[in-house]
């Protein structure tokens, strides 16, 4: 695939109560944002097991976004607090093995923030586009494994 044909693939895990509603609102309000994002609805940002993120990258995602309710607004009271700590640690680990920080982002977007959702996606796609295809976790089919 030539560089020109390449389009960033972003996997977005959106919490059902806020960020998914924000995506809905963005659509209803006709805010435009790039079509590079694949949305996966989760009940809460704390449902996002770090393994989901790793798997998304392993399956070829160029960026992963996790979005949930603002702190204090979680439908399950404190789910996003748990998510915050866990995903912060995951970010440190991914950066340690050489991933560019912009590829894995966490945002708090409420159901009323359709514009913020569109803006977040736009910014993320722009950043990942500049970085190019994700090279970490890429298949290296070398005959000298082991």
């Amino acid at each position: 695939m030539s560089v020109k044909e390449w389009e960033p693939k972003i996997v977005a895990f959106l919490c059902h109560w806020c960020s998914y509603a924000a995506a809905d609102l963005a659509g209803v309000s006709r805010f435009s944002y790039p079509p590079n994002v694949r949305i996966i609805r989760v009940p809460c940002s704390s449902r996002v097991n770090p393994q989901f993120v790793l798997r998304a990258f392993a399956e070829g995602a160029d960026g992963v976004l996790v979005a949930g309710c603002h702190l204090g607004d979680c439908h399950y009271v404190k789910g996003n607090y748990y998510a915050r700590r866990r995903l912060w640690v995951l970010q440190r680990l991914l950066e340690f093995v050489g991933m560019e920080p912009a590829r894995f982002q966490v945002h708090w977007i409420s159901g009323a923030e359709g514009a913020k959702f569109a803006e977040t996606i736009k910014e993320m796609v722009d950043k990942v586009r500049i970085l190019g295809p994700n090279r970490l976790f890429q298949e290296v089919k070398d005959i000298c494994v082991g």
């Binding site: 798997r55 990258f57 399956e59 976790f137 890429q138 298949e139 089919k141 082991g146």
Partner: peptide, 8 residues
């Protein structure tokens, strides 16, 4: 035994 699996 490929990198996506091993990293995961």
């Amino acid at each position: 035994h490929w990198l996506p699996e091993i990293y995961q």
